[in-house]
C-alpha cells in the first residue's frame, strides 16, 4: 500500500533522468540542439554572386564551378570552430583536391584577409557577405556550415559545425567519390 505513494516520486525521477541524459547528449555534441534540417538538399543550388574578399571592385561567382563537384564553406574570423577546422580545410584543398568556395560572413574585411594570409587560403574564391545577402539564400544560421554541390548544380549534403576527420572520412569523402563518378 505504501508503494503507491512512491509512484509520483518514480515519475519525477524518470523525468529527471531524461533531462540529465538530454543535457549530457547536448554537451557532447555542440550541434545537437542546433541542427536544423536543411531544406536545400536535393534542390538546385542558389547562385552566389558576391564581392571578392580580396578586391571588392571585382565579383566572384559560384557559376565558375558549374559542372564540377564543389564544396561551399561559410566561415568568419569571429567563429571559433572556423579557426579549429581551418588547418583541416587546408589539408583537404591541398592534398585531397577538394574545391572549396568560401563565403566570408558578417566579418571584418581586414581580419578575414589577415586570417587567410597567416593560416593559408584553401578557397578557389572567397565572397564577402557582410549583410547575409547570400548566406540567407542557403538557409545558413551559423558558422561554419559546409555544403556539397554536384555536377548538375544540386545541393547534396550539408554539415553545420566544424569539418573533422571523422566527418570527412565517414561522410564527405565517400560522397565526393560517388559524385565525381556520376
Amino acid at each position: 500500500m505504501k508503494a503507491r505513494y512512491l509512484i509520483p516520486f518514480g515519475i519525477f525521477m524518470a523525468i529527471m533522468a531524461i533531462f540529465v541524459l538530454g543535457l549530457h547528449k547536448m554537451s557532447e555534441d555542440p550541434n545537437f540542439a542546433r541542427n536544423v534540417p536543411s531544406v536545400l538538399i536535393g534542390k538546385q543550388a542558389p547562385e552566389i554572386v558576391l564581392p571578392d574578399l580580396f578586391d571588392q571592385s571585382k565579383m566572384v561567382s559560384s557559376s565558375s564551378l558549374n559542372g564540377q563537384v564543389w564544396v561551399l564553406n561559410v566561415w568568419a574570423t569571429w567563429c571559433p570552430e572556423c579557426w579549429r577546422e581551418h588547418d583541416f580545410l587546408m589539408y583537404l584543398a591541398k592534398k585531397e583536391g577538394v574545391k572549396f568556395f568560401g563565403i566570408n560572413w558578417r566579418d571584418d574585411e581586414a581580419a578575414a584577409k589577415k586570417f587567410l594570409k597567416d593560416k593559408g587560403d584553401p578557397f578557389v574564391a572567397v565572397g564577402f557577405d557582410p549583410e547575409s545577402r547570400s548566406i540567407m539564400n542557403w538557409g545558413v544560421y551559423g558558422a561554419p556550415e559546409t555544403f556539397v554541390i554536384d555536377k548538375q548544380g544540386v545541393v547534396r549534403w550539408k554539415n553545420a559545425g566544424a569539418m573533422t576527420r571523422e566527418v570527412w572520412e565517414g561522410e564527405l569523402k565517400p560522397l565526393l567519390n560517388k559524385l565525381e563518378k556520376g
Binding site: 540542439a33 542546433r34 536544423v36 558578417r106 549583410e131 547575409s132 540567407m136 544560421y141 551559423g142
Partner: peptide, 23 residues
C-alpha cells in the same frame, strides 16, 4: 530566429535576426 531558437525575429538581437528583419 534561427540562432536563439526560442525567440522570434522581433525579440532577437542576434545578427542573423537583424539581417532577416532587414530582409
Amino acid at each position: 530566429c534561427l540562432v536563439c531558437q526560442n525567440q522570434n525575429l522581433a525579440d532577437s538581437n542576434a545578427e542573423l535576426a537583424q539581417d532577416m528583419r532587414r530582409q
